[in-house]
């Protein structure tokens, strides 16, 4: 009830403030990641919150439980509730396209994170999935001396970000290291426990596995647990993606070989800033989606120290 009251209050305030200085205007901005409980989505959130603290913004996060259907429901609800802007990490590119289109038609700008939708909208703030995947492919190829067996721990079917990472990775191997064999590729649903299962099956089938690329850090950590308990951690190079704090620590300990680190605080903040600029009229919405790429950084045991403590998420 308190919250409702304060919301009513802020609405009243905004009515009174109409016509006053723009900085006084209250905005409601919604945040719909695929799941709010993950290191990456939490980092995005705190990065965005830091930006919004400076302006009069109610920033509300919603959990979609990894389901595209739920995200569509949430999008509809935020549109009905008259949110001013939405920051969305689509669970699926195609599935959220209609929702994003609907929001934009009502004048609500949508900024997507990582996964882009199929029709133009305000902006897409993304890691360089394909490029980073390519980079990891080259790193692995180099460290194996151009020969060996590699497995991939995949994202769920249809998750564009994961697919792009994998595609980039495969392209690098195909181009520069044709003698490296991809011996397996299985979906571990982005999560650690499933990745342990998948890694175990890789370990059982392939007695001479040399490297594993997991398309996110959670799954890389799962693979590490499985390899460690099989006593083969030292023989297998494990790469993740994203660069969350726990993974960086594991890299320092030498358990994980490397990850494509992106400053997720920065990424969230960039999305938030862009939203504010659109709302305050600093920027105008273009005909095409504005794509902002956050550059990756290959974090390995040698380079990880360069990532400052406050940039770890």
């Amino acid at each position: 009830m308190n919250r409702a009251k304060s919301m009513l209050f802020s609405v009243a305030l905004s009515v009174m403030a109409t016509g006053a200085a723009q900085a006084q205007t209250a905005y409601k901005i919604g945040y719909i990641p695929t799941s709010i409980g993950q290191a990456l989505t939490q980092a995005w959130r705190s990065g965005a919150e830091k930006v919004f603290k400076e302006s009069n913004v109610t920033f509300q996060a919603y959990d979609a439980n990894m389901k595209a259907e739920t995200q569509v429901t949430l999008m509809d609800d935020l549109i009905n509730q008259g949110y001013n802007a939405i920051i969305l990490q689509p669970a699926d590119a195609a599935a959220l396209t209609a929702s994003v289109k609907k929001a934009e038609a009502k004048g609500i700008p949508v900024i997507t994170l990582n996964t882009d939708t199929l029709l133009p909208h305000a902006a897409n703030v993304t890691m360089d999935d394909s490029g980073s995947g390519y980079l990891i492919g080259e790193k692995i190829g180099e460290s194996l001396g151009g020969k060996g067996n590699v497995a991939i721990i995949q994202s769920p079917p249809g998750a564009q970000a994961g697919i792009d990472r994998e595609k980039g990775f495969r392209a690098a191997l195909a181009k520069s290291y044709p003698n490296i064999k991809i011996v397996g590729a299985q979906n571990a649903l982005w999560v650690k426990d499933k990745a342990i299962e998948v890694m175990n099956s890789f370990l059982q089938v392939n007695k001479d596995l040399d490297a594993v690329f997991a398309v996110n850090d959670n799954m890389a950590e799962g693979a590490t647990i499985a390899a460690e308990s099989a006593g083969r951690l030292g023989q297998i190079k494990i790469w993740g993606f994203n660069g969350q704090k726990s993974t960086l620590t594991l890299i320092e300990q030498g358990k994980i070989t490397g990850t494509a680190y992106t400053n997720a605080f920065n990424q969230g903040g960039t999305a938030a800033k862009y939203a504010m600029e659109l709302l305050t009229g600093v920027k105008k919405k273009g005909a095409k989606t504005e794509i902002i790429v956050v550059p990756p950084f290959a974090a390995t045991k040698d380079t990880v120290a360069q990532i400052k403590a406050e940039d770890r998420w």
């Binding site: 259907e69 396209t97 209609a98 769920p156 079917p157």
Partner: peptide, 17 residues
């Protein structure tokens, strides 16, 4: 109706519903 609403089809539609 779900596909028409979401303008797509996903192999995990409905699972868990």
């Amino acid at each position: 109706f779900l596909c028409a609403r979401m303008m797509t089809a996903m192999p995990e539609f409905g699972i868990g519903s």
